[in-house]
Design a protein around this nucleic acid. Structure first.
Length: 797
DNA sequence: GTTTTCCCCCTTTTT
DNA sequence: GGGGGAAAAC
C-alpha cells in the first residue's frame, strides 16, 4: 500500500463498502480532507462508528499508512472497542496502530525512549492507591502534621500541579502552606525517581516534556503521525491538550471528536474550553455536527433537549430522531427511598415479564450511597443485579500483595511494594524495626532493600531473611514462564498458606488463582510466545496490512511490549504484566454472564445505552448535588450529568424522586429536583398525582414498610454481592507456540553479538517471523529480552 | 504482634 | 449507617 493523492472515495469499490449506510453528516466526517477538524457528536449519533470508519477509510484509500495514525481515548474500554471494530472492517494488523488511552500511549512512548526520559528501563507504574501510600511515606518522613497535610489532599495537589504542566519549581507559592506542599511535591518526585516508579500524571508529563525538549524526537513523531484522532475531547485536561499539540505537527490532520453537553468531568480538571481553543488554535475549517440520534425515541430526546437548553455557553447542538415519539417519560413520586426502591423493582419485574432482558434495564443514581437501599430491595426480592464501580480486580488487597512480591522480584528498590509485604504474612517485623529501617534508608539515601544491614537485633535478622526470600524467589523463577513465576511466588511468599487459614480466605485464594489466569490470558493476548509482539517504533514508511490469521483474537488492548528504540530490547513478560496490571485495573463487575439488572452512577453510565432506564433520586441536594448547586458552573455540570442520564435510554425512561431519604444515618426531607421542572410537560407522564404534598400519609407508609420487616434494618448485610470475577478462558498456546518454526535461524544455546550489549548466549526463543523474540544472557548487561525484528543479533562461533 | 475500639468521613472517577 | 484507618488495649 502506498501513499496516494486520490481524493475520490469511489475510486475503490471496497472503500465504497465502508461508507455504506452513513448519513450525510457522518459521511462528511469520515471523508474529511487531511486538515484539522472538529466533530460535535451528540449522544447516540454514531460517534464511534464515525471514528473507526474514518481510520479504516484513511487506510484503505491509501491516504495514510498504519504507522501514521494515532487515535487516543480515555478508557481502555473505548480503545478496545475501536480496535475490535476496526479489525472487523479491515484486514489490518491492529497491533501496529497507535490506538490506545492517553496513558497507554505514553507508556508505549516512554518504553521506547526511557533513557532520554531519564527513567530506568523497567520503570513501574503507580496506581492511585500506590501513589497515595507513597505520598503518605513522604509526609511521614518530613514529619509534617497529617491534619494539615492530609495525604489524600497532598496527592491531589501533586496530580493537579502535574496536570497543569508544573514541576515543583513552577508552582506559584502564595503562602506557607503552599510552600510546604511544594516541598512535599519535590520530595515525592525524588522518591519516585529513586525507586524507579511513575504515577499516572507523570506518564503524561514526562512524555510531554520529552517531546517539548527533544527537537529531533519531536520532529520524528510529528513527521510520522499524519492523522491524530482524539475521542471524548471535552474531557481533556490542560496537559493532555498541550501533549496533543506536541505530537501534532503543522501538517497533521487532527480530528477532535467531542460533545460539550456531555462534559461531566470538569471536577477533575477537564477543560471543556479545550474545544473552543482547538477550533481557534488549529484554525479549524471543518466543523461537523452529528445531530441525528439513533438511540432514543422522540419524547426522551425532547426531554433531553429541553433540559440542556437551560445551560448557557453551549457550542449549540440539538438532537433529532427519525423515529417516532415513542413512549412518554414516566415520572414517579415516592414517599421514601424505600418505597422508591420497591416501586422500581416491581416496575422492573413487570418489564422483565413482558420480555425485556434484565441487562437491558439500568438503574442510575447520582451518588454511590444511593445504591444500598436499591440493592437491598432487589436482593430481598431475589432479582439478579449487578453493581458497577466497586473494587476492581487489580485493586483487591490480596492481588496487590501478590503484585508487590512480583514487583520486588523485578525491582527490589520499590519501597512501596517492600513495605506492603515485608511483614505480610507476618514474619516478625514490627513497626519499630520498620521505623529503624526507614530512618537508615533516609539517611543514606538508599532503598529499604539496601538498608537492611543497618538494623540490628532480631528484627534486623528477620529483614535479612526477607531479602533472602525475595532473592531466592528471583533465582528460582529465572527462565520460568509467567504462570510458573506467579505460582512459585504464591507458594514461597506464604500468601496462599496465609489465606488458607483465614476465615474468609477462600474467596481470596480464588482471586489469587484468577491472577494466574489473568497472567496466562495476558501472555497469549499480548503475544508472548505467540504472534505479534515487537512493533517497529520507528517505522514510518508505508506499512503492510496483514490479514489476521485464523483463530487469532480479532483485537486486543494496546501492546505494552514496545522495544527500546535503539537496542530492540523489550520488557520481560513479568515486567510487562505488572505494567498491564497498573494501566488496566481490570473488571469490577460481578456475575458478567448472568442476566442482571444494571446498577451504576450516572457517571459510569456514560457511553452506555439500555432499553429501559430508571433515573432515581431526582431531589434538590442530591441531583443537583448540594456541593455543586452553589455556583453556576457546578449547576451546569449537574445538568449535563442529567442530560447524559436521560440519553442513555432507548425506549423507556423513568424518573423518580422521593420525599424522604435515609442519608448519613438520618432521614432527610427532600424537595423534587429543579431539573424535573425543566422537562417539557408534553413528554412526561406522571405515574403519581403531581405536587403531592406532605401530610399525604407518606410517613405512615414509611413506618409500615419498616414494620413489615423489609425495611433497611433487615437489609443490612445484603450488601454488594462480590462473587469471583468471571473465569477467563484458559489459553494454552504458549508452550505450543514455542515449538513453532521461528524462521530466524537462531537456536537456544547459540552465541550472538549485539552492537550495544556485546556477546551473549541465547537462553530462550519465542514467537516467529516479525514477532520472534529471544532472551539472551550477556556478560556485562545480564539477561535481556530482545525483539529480533529490531535488535541486530549476529551469530558468533 | 494482634485485636479491639473509637473516630472521622461521606459527590462524581479513569488512568 | 457504616466503612476504613489509626490509636489503644490485650
Amino acid at each position: 500500500m502506498v501513499f496516494s493523492d486520490s481524493s475520490e472515495a469511489s475510486a475503490r469499490p471496497d472503500a465504497q463498502g465502508l461508507l455504506r449506510g452513513l448519513n450525510p453528516e457522518q459521511l462528511a466526517a469520515v471523508t474529511l480532507p487531511d486538515a484539522p477538524a472538529l466533530i460535535l457528536a451528540g449522544a447516540g449519533s454514531g460517534k464511534t462508528r464515525v471514528l473507526t470508519t474514518r481510520i479504516a477509510w484513511l487506510l484503505q484509500t491509501g491516504r495514510v499508512s498504519p504507522g501514521g495514525v494515532m487515535a487516543v481515548t480515555f478508557t481502555n474500554k473505548a480503545a478496545k472497542e475501536m480496535l475490535t471494530r476496526l479489525g472487523a472492517m479491515l484486514p489490518v494488523n491492529v497491533r501496529g496502530l497507535w490506538i490506545g488511552t492517553f496513558h497507554g500511549l505514553c507508556n508505549r512512548f516512554l518504553r521506547a525512549h526511557w533513557k532520554a526520559a531519564g527513567l530506568p528501563q523497567s520503570f513501574q507504574i503507580l496506581d492511585s492507591g500506590d501513589q497515595l501510600s507513597a505520598v503518605k511515606r513522604v509526609v511521614k518522613a518530613m514529619q509534617l502534621d497529617e491534619e494539615r497535610f492530609v495525604p489524600k489532599q497532598v496527592a491531589w495537589f501533586i496530580a493537579d500541579a502535574k496536570e497543569n504542566g508544573q514541576r515543583p519549581k513552577d508552582v506559584p507559592v502564595r503562602d506557607g502552606q503552599t510552600q510546604t506542599l511544594v516541598q512535599v511535591y519535590q520530595a515525592y518526585e525524588d522518591q519516585c525517581q529513586r525507586e524507579g516508579v511513575v504515577d499516572f500524571a507523570e506518564l503524561m508529563l514526562r512524555t510531554y516534556e520529552l517531546m517539548r525538549d527533544d527537537a529531533l524526537l519531536r520532529e520524528h513523531y510529528r513527521r510520522r503521525f499524519r492523522h491524530i484522532l482524539v475521542d471524548e475531547f471535552q474531557d481533556t485536561n490542560r496537559l493532555q491538550y498541550a501533549w496533543l499539540k506536541m505530537f501534532a505537527g503543522p501538517g497533521a490532520a487532527v480530528l477532535a471528536v467531542g460533545d460539550d453537553d456531555q462534559s461531566i468531568y470538569a471536577f477533575r480538571g477537564a477543560q471543556v474550553g479545550n474545544m473552543a481553543d482547538f477550533e481557534r488554535e488549529f484554525k479549524v475549517e471543518h466543523l461537523i455536527k452529528l445531530e441525528t440520534n439513533y438511540r432514543s425515541s422522540g419524547h426522551i430526546l425532547d426531554a433531553a433537549n429541553a433540559l440542556i437548553a437551560h445551560n448557557s455557553r453551549r457550542l449549540g447542538k440539538t438532537l433529532r430522531t427519525e423515529a417516532g415519539h415513542g413512549e412518554p417519560v414516566r415520572v414517579q413520586e415516592n414517599a421514601s427511598d424505600f418505597n422508591e426502591a420497591q416501586w422500581l423493582l416491581e416496575e422492573a419485574q413487570q418489564l422483565h415479564r413482558q420480555g425485556l432482558a434484565r441487562r437491558e434495564i439500568a438503574v442510575l443514581y447520582r451518588s454511590n450511597a444511593q445504591s444500598r437501599v436499591i440493592e437491598s430491595a432487589l436482593f430481598n426480592a431475589g432479582i439478579p443485579y449487578r453493581v458497577y464501580g466497586g473494587l476492581r480486580f487489580f485493586e483487591r488487597a490480596e492481588i496487590k500483595h501478590a503484585l508487590a512480591y512480583l514487583r520486588l522480584i523485578e525491582n527490589c528498590h520499590d519501597d512501596t511494594s517492600y513495605l506492603r509485604v515485608v511483614n505480610f504474612p507476618t514474619r516478625g517485623i514490627g513497626a519499630r524495626t520498620l521505623e529503624q529501617l526507614q530512618d537508615a534508608a533516609r539517611q543514606s539515601g538508599r532503598s529499604l532493600w539496601q538498608s537492611v544491614g543497618a538494623v540490628g537485633g532480631k528484627g534486623g535478622a528477620n529483614l535479612i531473611a526477607f531479602n533472602a526470600l525475595v532473592d531466592s524467589m528471583r533465582n528460582a523463577t529465572l527462565g520460568l514462564t509467567l504462570r510458573e513465576i506467579i505460582e512459585h511466588m504464591l507458594q514461597r511468599s506464604g500468601l496462599v498458606d496465609f489465606y488458607r487459614t483465614e476465615k474468609e480466605g477462600a474467596e481470596r485464594i480464588e482471586n489469587l488463582e484468577e491472577l494466574v489466569n489473568a497472567a496466562e490470558a495476558f501472555v497469549t493476548q499480548e503475544g508472548f510466545g505467540k504472534d505479534a509482539v515487537a512493533l517497529p517504533v520507528d517505522e514510518h514508511g508505508p506499512g503492510q496490512i496483514a490479514a489476521p490469521k485464523p483463530g487469532e483474537p480479532e483485537a486486543v488492548a494496546a501492546v505494552d511490549l514496545t522495544p527500546d528504540a535503539e537496542t530492540g530490547e523489550i520488557m520481560s513478560p513479568l515486567a510487562a504484566f505488572l505494567t498491564h496490571a497498573a494501566l488496566e485495573a481490570g473488571d469490577n463487575q460481578a456475575q458478567a454472564g448472568q442476566d442482571a439488572v444494571q446498577l451504576m452512577t450516572v457517571h459510569s453510565a456514560k457511553g452506555l445505552e439500555f432499553d429501559a432506564v430508571f433515573i432515581t433520586g431526582l431531589e434538590e441536594g442530591l441531583f443537583p448535588h448540594e456541593n455543586s448547586a452553589a455556583d453556576a458552573d457546578g449547576l451546569e455540570e449537574e445538568r449535563r450529568l442529567m442530560y447524559v442520564a436521560i440519553t442513555r435510554a432507548r425506549q423507556r425512561l423513568y424518573i423518580s424522586y422521593s420525599q424522604t431519604r435515609m442519608l448519613h444515618g438520618q432521614t432527610r426531607y427532600n424537595v423534587k429536583s429543579r431539573f424535573l421542572d425543566e422537562l417539557p410537560e408534553e413528554a412526561l407522564k406522571w405515574l403519581t398525582p403531581r405536587h403531592q404534598g406532605f401530610g399525604s400519609g407518606f410517613a405512615r407508609d414509611y413506618q409500615q414498610a419498616w414494620q413489615r420487616g423489609s425495611g433497611l434494618g433487615s437489609m443490612v448485610g445484603a450488601g454488594r454481592a462480590v462473587p469471583a470475577p468471571p473465569p477467563v478462558p484458559l489459553p494454552r498456546a504458549m508452550a505450543e507456540a514455542q515449538a513453532k518454526a521461528a524462521g530466524h535461524g537462531l537456536r537456544v544455546g547459540q552465541g550472538v553479538f549485539h552492537t550495544k550489549f556485546g556477546e551473549g548466549v541465547i537462553v530462550t526463543l519465542e514467537g516467529a517471523g516479525d514477532d520472534a523474540r529471544a532472551q539472551v544472557r550477556f556478560g556485562r548487561h545480564g539477561l535481556k529480552w530482545l525483539a529480533l525484528s529490531v535488535a541486530k543479533l549476529t551469530p558468533v562461533e
